[in-house]
Design a protein around this nucleic acid. Structure first.
Length: 225
DNA sequence: CCCTGATTCGC
DNA sequence: GCGAATCAGG
């Protein structure tokens, strides 16, 4: 494969939209992420489109940036699911102040998907044709029905409880195609994470969670009432 | 380990 | 110009 105009353009577009080199390489096909990164550098757009990290204190501080009229964030969230009295933590803990648009987008989509399969969340863009990655969420697998205790094999349940003690406790952003996506805890509180243990090949969950997620009809018998 | 991007250097 | 190998980091 060679760098045709089309391919270069797709590269530029995706790169500026915040996609990783490997994602771009996968989409382009026929090239590795190294090739993509190499090209990115040759094209001189390694700065992505970020202005400047600039942590330095500016000599001339006041340029009257913001009126700064104390205004409430206008929360307006669609609906606060439920109060989380037990978790006083007000800060979401952001590890990178420079928000990556594409990632944030994916994050929101993923969150929506996990909490509720409905509405993909459309968003208005100035650019009419922004490159849109295919399905952001692999899905294809049923979402985990939380174990309702009396519906699953007590043995498996015990195993799960045990396994969950060794869970890697990954955040949504840390999940990959090979980490168990079984959610643990209450999404409305801080006590929420994903199992994160190595998945059983081909499955979205680890061994233990697969066993409670996919049950043979036979074993579901008499869970009478 | 998984993943990032950055750099080098033979082709 | 290209990109594998390598490096440095999360």
């Amino acid at each position: 494969m060679s760098w045709t105009d089309e391919r270069v353009e797709l590269l530029k577009k995706m790169w500026n939209e915040g996609h990783s080199a490997s994602q771009i390489a996968k989409e382009l096909g026929g090239v590795t992420r190294n090739a993509v990164i190499g090209k990115v550098h040759r094209l001189g757009l390694s700065n992505r489109n970020a202005p400047e990290p600039e942590v330095k204190a500016d000599p001339k501080p006041e340029v009257a940036p913001e009126p700064k009229v104390s205004v409430e964030p206008v929360a307006a969230a669609p609906a606060a699911p439920k109060a989380a009295p037990k978790a006083p933590e007000p800060k979401p803990v952001v590890e990178n102040p420079v928000v990556d648009l594409a990632q944030a987008k994916a994050e929101r989509a993923a969150a929506a998907s996990v909490a509720e399969p409905a509405e993909p969340e459309e968003e208005e863009d100035d650019a009419p044709e922004v490159y849109t990655p295919r399905a952001i969420i692999p899905a294809g697998q049923p979402l985990p029905p939380q174990p309702s205790a009396n519906e699953i094999d007590p043995e498996a349940l015990a195993t799960v409880r045990e396994v969950e003690k060794t869970a890697r406790k990954l955040t949504l952003l840390e999940l990959t195609e090979r980490t168990c996506k079984w959610p643990i805890g209450d999404p409305a509180t801080e006590d929420f994470w994903f199992c994160g243990l190595p998945v059983k090949p081909g499955k979205p969950y680890c061994e233990a969670h697969v066993s409670v997620a996919f049950q043979p009809m036979s074993s579901r018998r008499d869970r009478k009432r």
